[in-house]
Design a protein around this nucleic acid. Sequence first.
RNA 1: CGGGAUGUAGCGCAGCUUGGUAGCGCACCGUGUUCGGGUCGCGGGGGUCGCAAGUUCGAAUCUUGUCAUCCCGACCA
Length: 577
Amino acid sequence: MRMSKLFVQTLRENPADAEVISHKLLVRAGYIRKLANGIYNYLPLMWRVLKKIENIVREEMDRAGAQELLMPFVQPSELWKESGRWDVYGKELMRMKDRHEREMCLGPTHEEVITAIAREGIRSYKQLPVNLYQIQSKFRDEIRPRFGLLRGREFIMKDAYSFDVDEKGLDKSYEIMAEAYKKIFERCGLETKMVQSDSGAIGGSVSHEFMVLVNENSETNAGENDVFYCPKCGYSANSNHAVSKLNPVNTDGGFEKAEIKDTPKCGSITELAEYLKVPSCVICKCLIYVIDGKYVAALIRGDRTVEETKLMNAFNGNEIRIAGNDEIEEIMTNSGYSAVAGFIGPKGLKGIEIIADETVVPLKNFVIGINETDKHLTGANWGKDVDLPSKICDIRLVEENDLCPQCSEKLKVTKGIEVGNIFKLGMKYSKSMNAVFSDKDGQEKPFIMGCYGIGISRTAAAAVERHHDEHGIIWPQSIAPYLVTIVPVSDQDEQQMKIAEEIYQKLLEAKVEVLIDDRSERAGVKLKDADLIGIPYRITVGKTIKDNLVEFKTRSTGEIEFITPEQAAEKIKKIIL
RNA sequence: CGGGAUGUAGCGCAGCUUGGUAGCGCACCGUGUUCGGGUCGCGGGGGUCGCAAGUUCGAAUCUUGUCAUCCCGACCA
């Protein structure tokens, strides 16, 4: 391709609305352009990158025995009502009506449609297992789109769905996909970590995410997920799912008897601990949450934080938020108290479920709220002064240096970009949508399903996030829009232009994806653009052509060598083999 | 949805306090110059100042409303 004809516009300055590096660079280098909030045009260079990623995904999915198909982007509400998700998916599902007032939605994911396909097309166990996938634009009306392609509303995704006879089959399908994913990301030049995760709105039991780990010290944190991992045994999990063993701490408050003490203005754990001169780990914290419209009181040790996803899952909820002051007031009134947040305790709460984190169980002679403002009960003990709730779960956020649940090594934390995930769905959809097959014994059984996603556009952005320098993008070779760019330094110099053109033709013949910067620009402009756009190899034809030498530069290493035009062409040909 | 900020040419911004009919840099067009890291000069095109209403002889500027965008929190590939 000739740069003079290529549809690309590079910018000198970063776009004002870009926050993360991948967004800035992709806009500056002319790969994407915003059309609306969270909605982007993929310009020719970007489209080439996306197609590269898609093809890697296709090859590995096909190799894993999956079959590609394409489902509609617009879906009827009926299917979503069958699965029950029409009411629980929330505003993220883009709903609309057609001219006949029929309710439709834009596909955020395709479990419903694929299940409908399976129930019509698969009648016998003999047809199983089967894995179907598609690569397509998805639409999720995100609350807050941001970070360019990393969190758009419209994005390209590969979604695959497996159907099996039984759990054992699903385990196998799941394993095959996990292996395929590892290969896919490896081929895309991305190091990923497969971590345990919460299964969220899609439902199901077991789930893993593929995370591209990003540096904590990068200027912005494009990694939106905290990943906890064990350097020793390899345990790793998203913070919304991670569990840990606790470092031993003193859980005895040391108070000699149960006594109500004045604790003026001690509404926070820090203030309370300081005032009573006790460590925060002997205080029992009580937080009020609203889960699917119902109030829940959560007890947790004072030095720990509630992980809201875990708490929500403990109640099989879909939506969780912390209660507001007016809601707390309502609970207090109903229970005959009048305390404000910070002085709430489980004792005497009416019409509200109470759950305790495991961390509060061993507490002795501890401190706890008693629903009286500016007072706390000290020296409390379970059973004697306060009842221990019957519902005891792990609802805490893991912290760095907690102990690994598998091997007790200290856990570490890092930021990650989720580029793929795999779920064991089980019968969630096949049951609700009555998708069944006849098993060996002639009995009808629901399919055992799995689903597997890869964010194609997000993977591209993650690659930029991971591979760039102060000059621009450094594409991994496998997903670069072009492999090599030829830059004649001066378009005034006939010999330079002639040699550049010769190399270009030679590489074209060898089916190399090659650019030639034939624009009538100064050297600086062309070289800056080559770096910004991030082509892996650059052949610069300059003054040294008088000695029959060109400069061969590798973008990723910065390595430069002077070789003959023939050698340069041969070198590129070798690279593609 | 809550908290904060911003909307002026394709992009980045100034002008607004103190109303007088819009400007700079990049990009674009013409021309000359320069030619291995975003040359320099001359000339040029492009904007209903987000939108609407109001105040005023007169509004980018003041008032009200509205829409959009960005950042911080609750969602997820």
